[in-house]
Amino acid sequence: MDNNPILRIATKILFAPIILFGLYVQFHGDFGPGGGFQAGVIVASAFILYAIVFGLEKGKELFPLSINLFLLALGGILYGGVGIASMMLGDEFLSYNVLGSSQQAGQHIGILLVEFGVGLTVSNVMIALFYAFASFESSNGEKK
């Protein structure tokens, strides 16, 4: 698919707006519809689109598997870390009130970080699954 000029140009034009929209959904989830799950899927779709159009090798050059797997684990750790941080500060697990100067500020910080953790894990699981399926060799040895 990498020699079709329309697909290549359209992908290059669309890539940044998709990421931007993903970030908007991620960090605007407090005020409108959206949140970590949706944003993670949107960001993942940008990288998957790139890998489909330009080929898996180019996709892995843009977003290497090692970074992918690292961020995949980091999302869950970030979520759990927020919980443990609030425990360290003297409240219960995942109780965000102590994270900020006031109760509302603490809740804001906690929700933002937690949603970011969800987004990281979801987007990187999706990208990792696509990489795994696309580079998977079937039992008769033929490659997709």
Partner: peptide, 15 residues
């Protein structure tokens, strides 16, 4: 009052 977030879905889901 306690969380200060307009989207109730997010406050239920995350907090």
């Amino acid at each position: 009052d306690d969380i200060g977030i307009p989207n109730i879905v997010t406050s239920v889901l995350a907090s």
